[in-house]
Design a binder for these strands. Structure first.
Lengths: 337, 337
DNA sequence: TTACAAATTTCAATCGTTTGCACTTTAACA
DNA sequence: TGTTAAAGTGCAAACGATTGAAATTTGTAA
């Protein structure tokens, strides 16, 4: 690689010391106008760019944040990245992306990578497999600010940003009931994830509000297209199949619709379906899917803003109080209900 | 931030010099077994981690690659990132992501960011707006290896990785013809993009092969959902509307299907539609979309591998010969044709 | 004991930039 | 002309790790 122009090069050509050049470049008042002008001119001419790595070393900071995320391919996560990148960009931070691919092992390695790369802070949404969180604790022990988003855990002393899963689920189920559904199934996420729990509990309470008994047999674990399609097949073949479906994400909801149509049922006449995410696919599905908008972009923005705030107040080490931000959701009504 | 353990800390505690500690840690033969063992033990005990930034400065390399990409939210691009991250991860590289959001201005800033961050190499898919490429030339002038993927340009002395757009388009249109379509429309991407040109020319040649005259009025510029829906509306209202549609991407194809159904036309009975991308949405659409698989993941992998190869052979500066890799595509036949 | 080689270890410079302090120049005033 | 303060520059250390060369220690044989 071509050697980059350094302060030393400029100093040499001008017969100055590196200190003078350094100060001239940043308008230090000690430097005479003549010298300053000369330095700046030559710097521009040579195309001098300060070497960030040297600065990183000196300041012990990289202006980089690490992002550990299950899978970029999910619409929801890429929307979040969008929000994160937006805020990072505006604050002159760069983002390093590490995917766990929903693997705990990979995630542990990711936390190490984040450490070796000396990022200033980390944004995390952990994998479905993860139920030991000591690798994140290690980050916190190293006093690297961590903000969890979407998939969060209360046991760690760290900030959190989440969608209002409870509210969203409540809205969704309430909507199904108002549309006339008496028996409503819930396709749920694993219950060790907070989103799994909150959405189930929103579902539960919406039923309660309308005096509909909670039926455990109508709650199935299915948060992917394939598993949801299979479960939908089973449940729709029961004689007393439910007429309302609340799925934990859009993919599962779409799988339900697909399978229903496959079995000769009409949506929304025979069954009604609500998803969660408001992905691109929701608008494409046929009929278009009623869903809960999670505002992924805003969620990413909030998470990044929170992290940057922590990075700026680093001196303030007295008694860390975790902040939990909750982003309100919104029901997007379409033709599947 | 807590001060990290350095080599100096270990040296001090053991009454050694930093050089000895450094060499002991990397099994240099000069170091006596006793010393080595002692150093390693203490290093492990204290949780020593080498400071990558210091190494970056010394080696003038960051083990980081920059990725400049239009929008992460597109399935195709996130699939590519997946492939890139996979290869980077295996080779101990980290990936910094910069989105241009299809904005030329932002892209120029991204190239600067990539420079200040002193990445070792850059992977680029440029924005639709871009038709001045001097900002990329600047990267090349700085002797930073650049690999273009998907959206590429021949005028720059840089490697390229692309899907075989011509072949894919040919397959798609050939398939439509074999399914009985006589009049086939093409919803195209802007013609200053190589993908726009290649896919049009694949379309053209497939027609030619079957002696179907090329009709310019059947080629419309529409590569987004909204623009395609609008164009589909117009074209389907013509009395002599075409019965085959080849869209430059899945979103446009899905828009065509939506609009056709909206106008009371049946797919695939009345019109047949083929997309390009093989996104998740293609499998979800109703009817499921026949499309050309671009193998985004493999494309990302190839691009990253090519870049890493360049990074490894940096000494070899004699007469740079750009490499162009073409990834074969595959027609995925579903029920829209 | 001396000499010499081999085995270990340390020194010092390096990467590029910043910054407290010391130094030199300039100018002004007595 | 000498004194002194102000203005402008330079020195050197620091960030953390590496590495060629120099220095030290150790071992061995005469």
């Amino acid at each position: 690689m071509k050697r980059q122009i350094t302060i030393k090069d400029i100093a040499l050509k001008l017969g100055l010391s590196t200190s003078t050049v350094s100060r001239a470049l940043k308008d230090h008042p000690d430097i005479s106008p003549k010298t300053r002008a000369a330095v700046k001119e030559l710097a521009a001419l040579l195309g001098y760019r300060p070497n960030r790595i040297a600065l990183n070393l000196r300041n012990n900071s990289t202006s980089t944040i690490g992002l550990i995320i299950p899978e970029i391919e999910h619409y929801f996560f890429s929307a979040i990245i969008n929000g994160i990148e937006e805020v990072a960009y505006k604050n002159d931070y760069s983002v390093m992306v590490f995917q766990s691919n929903e693997s705990y092992k990979r995630e542990v390695i990711n936390t190490q990578a984040v450490l070796t790369n000396r990022v200033d802070g980390v944004l995390v949404s952990f994998s479905k497999e993860t139920n030991d969180f000591s690798h994140f604790q290690k980050l916190i022990d190293n006093e690297i600010p961590v903000v969890f988003f979407d998939r969060v855990i209360d046991e760690l002393q760290a900030d959190q940003v989440v969608a209002d899963d409870y509210q969203g689920a409540f809205l969704a189920v309430n909507h199904l009931i108002e549309k006339g559904c008496k028996r409503i199934a819930h396709f749920a996420a694993p219950q060790h994830l907070a989103i799994g729990k909150s959405r189930l509990s929103g579902y539960h309470d919406a039923l309660l509000k309308h005096n509909i008994p909670f039926d455990q047999s109508l709650v199935v674990l299915a948060d992917t297209f394939d598993s949801a399609r299979k479960s939908a097949h089973d449940i729709l073949r029961r004689p007393d199949y439910p007429t309302g479906f609340f799925a934990v994400n859009d993919m599962a909801a779409i799988a339900i619709i697909k399978e229903a149509k496959h079995l000769g049922l009409r949506v929304p006449e025979d069954i009604k379906v609500v998803g969660f995410e408001n992905s691109k696919s929701a608008a494409i599905s046929e009929p278009e899917l009623t869903t809960v908008d999670q505002f992924g972009f805003e969620l990413g923005r909030e998470a990044c803003q929170l992290l940057l705030k922590r990075l700026k107040n680093e001196e303030n080490e007295t008694s860390f109080k975790p902040i939990k931000k909750v982003i309100k959701t919104r029901l997007v009504v379409r033709s599947s209900t």
